[in-house]
Design a protein around this nucleic acid. Structure first.
Lengths: 335, 335
DNA sequence: TTGTAAGCGTTATCAA
DNA sequence: TTGATAACGCTTACAA
């Protein structure tokens, strides 16, 4: 019988010592109480309770190189869009006994690299990413790690492994075309932060404008999106393009900020200025007019991503590695 | 020279084999390249690059029972308030070489217990919590884990260990008193989700009302806060208390939802109905009138919490275990 | 039903 | 400057 009594955190050995058994028996009890004799069972249960034993997963991680955890790298924590994504993911992972570890990388490839290295060093079994551009070292690490990876939100041209997302370029194209169909001709694209998805939407916007023989015009900033930034960008737009009759905004924050500022300044929405946002967040349903926006199925993306990941972890062969989800345009009254 | 060539993920041994040294030398290089001979250094560097070696922290966690990681349990990911808190935390932890692991427990003590167990099983060195009510098992686990814990946002009556937060009861009291000073007498408290902080604010609201000889009235729901819920609760309030001339809202989501609905319905804010929110989020600065709100220094709370935690982890003796931070009331025009 | 032994990948310690 | 050894806590495989 070994003795381990120096540390404070209880180990299986501590329990075993008190029960008068070996840690092996306790280990068995932990995984399946039925596998030990009833008497032993009760004694162990009592000691566990008394000691407040907490499972230590580290040894298992070490010997099996598996942590039963899935890492998620988000761009930002303050964006509802990603909270919804995580909800979708968690619904699936929880049902399969996987934990999730969340980190955020603030829209930077470099930060993403560090966060991924960190998650890998904790031996996560799989990764869900929210960006499709990665540093060479990130790609290299993911390759050596050889764990399943799902890139979400976008549809990457060259997926690392699996992907679930939507075609932002096409979604933007559809939204702008809806604006054109409403008779808008001087549509300006409001952009912020200039991340990949913002660029994709711009492409869609430009394609729709050009196809209709219209001139694309962007008002962009590298600042982080916010409601107040929407107001600022609206004012810049009005100063630069006084004839502007439509705003396609890269997200609802900008759109709502602009919409509220319009009301303030007596600009009629949608008559004088049609406004379309992106993501269809709740806030758009309480402003007046209600914001027309591109609805993106974040929870669904999360669920699908997690499902794919877990299938891959279960050794299933994934035939469809890239899944596109559909977008719709909400029937707000701001357009 | 041992051989380890079955697995895919490279180990120190793999590197050592290729360099013709022992893993001990490689281990030294990893922690401090200066500690090995220049020639060795270059050879190791080359092999690491070639193999795409990723550090494995698990063995260190096992032998030192330390992970250089701090666990954070948030109630929700979709609430900006907690994103700000995390920013504050991270600014400090990053500077000290600690990683953070974020989980969320959705305002449930039971979920918090599970998430804490999970974080502890990853051997986090410290914990930052955002709730002050915990299950008995949570308390027991934290006691046995014997790691530093900071409870944030609130000021608990009986802190587990350390705490950084603000006095929500007093903040609410001050806000309501400001409303009363503006001549409002039929002030209703709008509440959602009914978590601890919502209850504390209610206490402060009731105290202020009673001290002024006024009747406290609450319109509450267990639903999750949202802008649209603000509109719903406003309508319920107007139906039940037609004379209502002030709304004290438990957060800005409700306040903004209510404010926008008022404009829609032609209710003059603040003349007919004064509105005060809580948290002073960005959205409040773009609505008109600008929302008057209780400003809560989330980033500061995060920074202080992380600082305390790291001091404790460095073995410093913490004399001031509970830190109160100040609140202010923004000078919006909705009151 | 319970026990023994070995091993997971790293680092602290001591030795050369 | 580099190496050998043991240890961290658990689980797998085998044995009793």
């Amino acid at each position: 019988m070994e003795m381990t009594e120096k540390r404070n955190r209880a180990t299986l050995q501590d329990i075993a010592d008190r029960v008068g058994m070996t840690k092996m028996t306790v280990s068995r009890y932990m995984r399946n109480p039925e596998s030990v004799a009833p008497g032993t069972r009760d004694k162990i249960a009592a000691v566990i309770e008394q000691l407040g034993y907490i499972q230590n997963r580290v040894p298992a991680m070490l010997s099996k190189a598996s942590s039963k955890a899935i890492g998620i790298v988000l761009p930002s924590l303050s964006n509802q869009v990603f909270a919804h994504l995580v909800q979708g993911i968690e619904r699936v992972t929880q049902a399969h006994g996987y934990d999730i570890l969340i980190t955020h990388a603030g829209y930077s490839e470099q930060a993403e690299e560090e966060k991924i290295a960190s998650l890998l060093s904790y031996q996560v079994d799989g990764l869900i990413l929210t960006e499709t551009n990665h540093t060479p070292r990130t790609l290299q690490m993911l390759k050596t790690a050889a764990i399943p990876v799902v890139e979400t939100m976008e549809l990457p041209d060259t997926p690392i492994d699996m992907a679930v997302g939507l075609d932002h370029e096409q979604a933007a194209y559809d939204a702008v075309q809806a604006m054109i169909n409403k008779g808008k001709t001087q549509i300006v694209y409001l952009a912020a932060r200039l991340d990949t998805r913002t660029q994709l939407r711009r492409k869609g916007y430009e394609r729709a404008m050009k196809e209709a023989g219209l001139t694309p015009r962007c008002v962009a900033t590298e600042q982080h999106s916010s409601f107040s930034l929407g107001e600022t960008l609206l004012n810049q737009t009005l100063a630069r393009y006084p004839n502007c009759d439509g705003l396609f905004c890269t997200n609802d924050d900008l759109a709502v900020g602009a919409l509220l500022a319009c009301k303030e300044q007596g600009i009629g929405v949608p008559e004088a200025l049609g406004i379309v946002g992106y993501n269809a967040l709740d806030i758009g349903t309480v402003v007046s007019p209600r914001l027309t926006s591109v609805a993106t199925p974040r929870e669904l993306i999360g669920e699908r991503s997690a499902t794919l990941l877990i299938q891959a972890l279960s050794g299933e062969t994934i035939t469809e590695k890239v899944h596109a989800v559909a977008h719709t345009i909400t029937d707000g009254t701001s357009l």
